[in-house]
Write a protein that binds this DNA or RNA. Structure first.
Lengths: 208, 208, 208, 208
DNA sequence: CCGTAAGCGAGACGGTACGTCATGTCTTAGG
DNA sequence: CCTAAGACATGACGTACCGTCTCGCTTACGG
């Protein structure tokens, strides 16, 4: 979030911590109200009661700001142990669906991803702030299922990683596509069908 | 693409057909070169050898123009009968992956989807021009598999439609997520794994 | 008004006379309503119930059209013989003042004169259509005053022309300045003072 | 010229004084080169090495800008005491004629006056910046002539003001009409004739 | 009475300028 | 060194008119 290296001898007036949170809050508020494409730095600054200068001193541009503003929302995703892989998956997918249906996430997420196709640092920031936090859930869920004996203890770590990646792309992609492209609700019925498909596929793969 | 109602008594100078194609070509060229966010109407107009006004006379805004410019690329997707559901899926997913890795599609698709979360007419245009053309492939592939006996002839049309929708979101979502969010190649190995997962899931579902 | 040379073998559909008058009327109407600077060719055409093409076939540009539309108003100026030079002057100056206070004249006259400083053909058109018609009044008035014996029969024609020019610039200039720059009414009191000044000056000059 | 209220707590970056003068100079340069009707705000901005926004931050529109750019030229008019009313008049009228024959004044003055017939604030600006500065010369000249005894010390202030107004409209109007409408030079011969007419008229009036 | 040449309406066309807006930088004064 | 305020250069926006063009159609004359 902060571009200045902190190892520098800290001198002069310190940065206001309030300002940082006010900016992120204001950013989310503008996202809800106007959407990503009509969000302007000036507007965010005004609502945060902050000068534009302060904003630019901390974020290089609109996209990085938006990523930081939205990233924190992804921390809310949790993976409580509900006793079965099926229940764990359904639970987390529902959470993810609900998150994607919030207006700030809906409007911002695909926008920054689209921008990131031409902006390597932005892609890295998204990966670090958002994608990896989601992916962690897949790893944990798979590990827990193995511990429970629902999935076999595969030895080959490369294959495991490949399957983890696949599951992540399938689940996250399906939810995003459902919510944003098809514009249909990520409700329990749909989640149950998705989970059934996944479990069927995983079981079939395990039996080979 | 054309906003003029054709029932109107045709009078005045007719629109130049050349201009239309030149604009769409120029749009794709700019997408490749600069990406969606740096594409400007003025730039497109200049490259198409056309006045900005001509552009605005035909498209209300940048997003609708980009949708039309990119939509035609999705017509290239084909579903030849390769003899098995597995082969058919792998083939079409590879095609879709290749399409998504083209720079014009990569930069434009998520951008317009992101915009469409706040723009109902745009969402409709995307659905009509792009999404429905892709979805058709799912319907055809499923029908063909049923004809071959690879999938059961389910009676309940609602369930069939729900599964079609699910498969569509899963496949399209997974490929998009792989290509744009994870930024990993949609190569044969990955496609084979995805297909295996899908077929396993579908078979398991069918056996219930 | 008509740019086509009439010596040409007259063939094809003749120009609509109605269109011409409708255009000039519409021009004056727009001048009254919007003023010179907001008058547009398209607007005039629409109000005249005529295509823009028709307009451009007859006038090269807005300024020439406006000159023609306004010129006819200057034909209304008359110089009835009221028995004395003083009465004749007061009468014609009052008329001129009233003409200049009409909104179409007020807004158009100085505008086209301003344009004419950079447009020789326009200056010529203004001279022919407007200025010379006014100047004629000076010549007639002076001649009549000489016939009455109010002014001496000067021999030298150059001096006579120079004085005519001076009187014209003084009278027309004073009225225009009063009406447009000072934005004060050209009323009887003012006209009487102007006339007195002029007659005094002319008499003094004659006595030399 | 400056729209910002000075009572406001002076904060933020102050306006560049250089920019202001550069803009006015550039405006005069464009007037000379292209004339009023082809002067564009963008062109002025470019030549002044300034952004268009800076221009619009300081002037509401082209006309107000042009008035300010031209107004300063009228400060050059001077009324040195040449010993007689006749000499004073001839001198100032010649100056005024020379000023009106400069290309920037010629093209701009009538244009903004024409615009002012539909724009009250503009008329006020013209009056304050240009007209009143000229009118002052009439008042001074008349006062000086009275002091010299060339004109009677009239008591009635209303009549004095009315005559001042008349003289102003006659002199300024005649010069403008000569220079712009008749498009003839304001040379010594003409000025002598005009002055003779005026003095004759004033003397005749005084004798009554 | 038929062809043809010009006029007509409609409206699309390539341009140019508009006046506004957002970006990211800068220059003040003050903390 | 940070902060608020706001001016600044830049450049795209979407609109409005310009004057031209290309249609299909209408008129009237002249062969």
């Amino acid at each position: 979030m902060c571009s200045r290296t902190r190892s520098r001898t800290r001198t002069g007036r310190p940065r206001s911590a309030e300002a940082g949170t006010a900016i992120l809050e204001a950013t989310r508020a503008v996202l809800v109200e106007l959407g990503w494409s009509k969000l302007t730095m000036g507007d965010v600054a005004t609502r945060a009661g902050v000068a534009k200068t302060t904003l630019y001193r901390r974020w290089a541009n609109k996209n990085e700001l938006v990523v930081d503003a939205v990233a924190v929302l992804f921390d809310e995703l949790e993976l409580p142990d509900l006793g079965s892989l099926q229940a764990d998956i359904e639970n987390v997918v529902l959470q993810f669906g609900a998150l994607l249906e919030r207006p700030e996430t809906k409007t911002a997420l695909m926008a920054v991803v689209a921008e990131s196709t031409r902006d390597e640092p932005l892609r890295e920031r998204i990966r670090a702030s958002i994608v990896d936090r989601q992916k962690r859930l897949v790893l944990e869920g798979r590990q827990r299922a193995q511990d429970r004996g629902e999935l076999p203890q595969k030895r080959d770590p490369e294959t495991v990683a490949a399957i983890d990646d696949l599951i992540f792309d399938v689940v996250a992609g399906a939810v995003v596509h459902r919510a944003l492209v098809s514009a249909e609700p990520v409700d329990e019925a749909w989640v149950r069908r998705l989970t059934a498909l996944l479990l069927g596929g995983l079981t079939a793969a395990a039996e080979q």
